[in-house]
Simulated assay, not measured.
Amino acid sequence: MGSMSGMVAVSVVGLYRTGKSYLMNRLAGQQSGFALGSTIESKTKGIWMWCVPHANKKGHTLVLLDTEGLGDVAKGDEKHDTWIFCLAVLFSSTLVYNSLGVIDNMALEKLHYVTELTENICVKAEVGQDEDGSADFMRVFPSFVWAVCNFTLQLIKEDKPITSDEYLGSALELKQGYSRQIDRFNLPRRCLCKFFAVRKCFVFPRPASTQNMRRMEELTEKELDSEFLEQANTFCHYVYNNAEPKIVNGGRTITGTALGNLAEVYIEAISNGKVPCLENTVVSLANVRAVEQALQFYMTEMLSIAQLPMRPEELSDIHKIAEKKAIEVFITMTFNDNDQIYQKELMVQYLLTNKIMDRQENSDRQI
């Protein structure tokens, strides 16, 4: 993963055996890559990551995240599925939800993970009493794409043709009134609208005959249904043109190194039974990077003049100048380091670096 390029991260989530991996391979421009599988068993375990150069955004990397299928009864661990879904939301700039058949109440009830996001993710370290936090979630959550596979209906409502986006919009309409049943009906719809500012829908007919679908990786484009192929290409172009680089709280764009750090921080929080907090993570990532960059600047300055003959007092003066410049670099990059925890960490790193450089210099003199 390039450390400086923008990362456009796309996750595909959904129930197991719904063709998620095939969509990922199409986005990567490959026939195969993510394992597809042709049996009732879920093939993907955990979250698989694949990085490819972005199709039309120069200097950007397309990070494809293929997730373990949700709802596999053999796993028997509902919380595991919830965390898979939450991590996909946290990592991606575009979240693709894959399902089969139609968008009806049953399909929306299966998307109950979206109703649990506020319990498992926090955006701010502290939320005011009058805030429900939905605006904060919407600001940092990915765009949402619902991909309906094996769709056999006609897109018609009240005898008029409708678009797939209008189909999704219609499915997300709330029921009026007050009852436990109505609240249950409205909850996933309300959450999708509250948390995901951008919502898009694609419907795909069956790609091939049942027999041929068992060997999807081997099929040539000529063997695929032409309407399916057209929709798949439209879907890919939408993602290429509209999926934005991943940003985190504070509007910071994530680079490759930071995405790796992000994964470590979130998974460590989950492993320790804590709720991942975006604000704390951003502060941590920004300041760790500030320390790294300042230290790198300092070492570059010192190493550039280390070969020159000079008196110890001259070296001391150069060290002070380099340190002052490095602290200026740190201050421009730091983020909410109010207790100077990371600045103290930088000073510790300076001392360690100086000891290493002194040892090297003494060793060179002995030689």
Rank of each mutant, 00 (worst) to 15 (best):
P207I: 11
E68A: 08
G169K: 08
D72W: 10
Y238P: 01
V265F: 04
E173M: 09
D81S: 06
G14Q: 03
L95G: 01
V96F: 03
A232G: 06
S143I: 04
H60T: 05
T115S: 15
L23S: 03
N280A: 11
G19K: 08
V127T: 14
K157E: 05
T39Y: 07
D104I: 07
K344I: 11
L117R: 07
I254R: 03
T234I: 11
M299E: 14
G2M: 09
V12T: 07
G19V: 05
N186I: 04
K246G: 03
L168P: 07
I331P: 00
C149I: 05
C201V: 03
A306N: 11
E109H: 04
P312E: 09
H319K: 15
P142F: 08
T281G: 04
N362W: 07
R311D: 08
I84D: 04
E314I: 13
S271L: 09
N336M: 12
M106V: 11
E217S: 15
A306V: 08
L259Y: 00
Y342T: 01
E218L: 12
E126W: 06
A286D: 01
L346P: 02
N233A: 15
L100C: 05
Q307W: 05
I254D: 00
L87Y: 03
I367D: 00
D225L: 06
G250A: 13
H319M: 10
Q360L: 14
E313M: 12
G37K: 07
K79I: 10
Y97I: 11
E230M: 13
A290E: 01
K57Y: 01
L70E: 00
A147H: 01
R252K: 14
D225M: 09
T332R: 14
Q181H: 09
R252N: 09
F335A: 06
L174S: 09
R252M: 10
M1N: 06
V282N: 02
A28H: 02
K355Y: 01
T210I: 12
R139M: 11
E126Y: 04
E268T: 15
F228A: 11
E173Y: 00
M7W: 00
E119T: 05
L219S: 12
E345V: 04
A263M: 11
L229N: 13
P312Q: 12
D130K: 14
V12Q: 02
V239Y: 02
F144G: 05
I321T: 13
F195W: 13
P309C: 11
R215D: 10
P312R: 14
K160V: 14
L168C: 11
C51K: 12
D364V: 06
Y97V: 13
L285H: 00
L117M: 10
E217L: 07
L64C: 05
T353Q: 12
L65D: 04
N362F: 06
